[in-house]
Amino acid sequence: MTRPPASASPTAEPRWLRWLLVGSALLFLGLNLALPLAAVFVEGLRKGLAAYVTAISEPDAISALRLTLTVAAIAVPLNIVIGLAASWAIAKFDFRFKSVLVTLIDLPFSVSPVVSGLIYVLLFGLQGWFGAALRDHDIQVIFAVPGLVLATIFITFPFVARELIPLMEEQGREEEEAALSLGASGLSTFWHVTLPNVRWGLLYGVLLCNARAMGEFGAVSVVSGHIRGRTNTLPLHIEILYNEYNFAAAFAVASLLAGLALVTLVLKSLLEWRFAGQLAGKVH
């Protein structure tokens, strides 16, 4: 008998405005996000598929890949341990200055990547605090793999902890207390009660940590010395290729990392949709 008016609900915009807003947002996102992403792949294939394959399989690229994976393989597990320890300490106990501790853990987030590399040069570089001692024992930190690992750990330090702390705080202590009252040991409680509860949040944090570890550029650039085949991670290798005007090769190698980014996004989204209740706080 009646038709609802054009703006059916009192809390909805007129249809034309809705389409305008959606269109503008999509235009902006397309320009700023989708286009750069597309550019990586298109430019990588500009000289054809053969050149693409050559670029990603030549020895320097392979060793850069291996180095990137190695650094990540060390940094990520260490950050998992630190993240689990920190979130256990913060979520399961009460003590003063807790928020100070959380802020300190967050510090690497607000430090410029270049500064993150500089600090290790100050410690372990030739004129650094430990420079002389290291030289005497013939240990290379800066311009060698250990430096890369340290800088990467610094950069990715907060990632796992940031995911787990709010999650564990939300989950409370009752289950752990119940397990302990039933006679379980601390370790057993952690393994059988806590870990299963936080596994999706942990996975989420690991995903982000890994993406950042493999993609870090600024910090690693400062500590690496850019020695081809030895201290070049994948992002640094890309920079070298680019600076040599070897654009297609640079983009080809970059597409590997872009592919990793896409995989990370897909897994991240999957985790968010399926386990939204078991991930706390998603701003990074």
Partner: peptide
Amino acid sequence: VSALVDLPFALPTAVAGIALTAL
């Protein structure tokens, strides 16, 4: 689109850098 919004978090900065320059 929602997943894509997180691209800057996931994409290595150097890759973003050369892509933006290419554009």
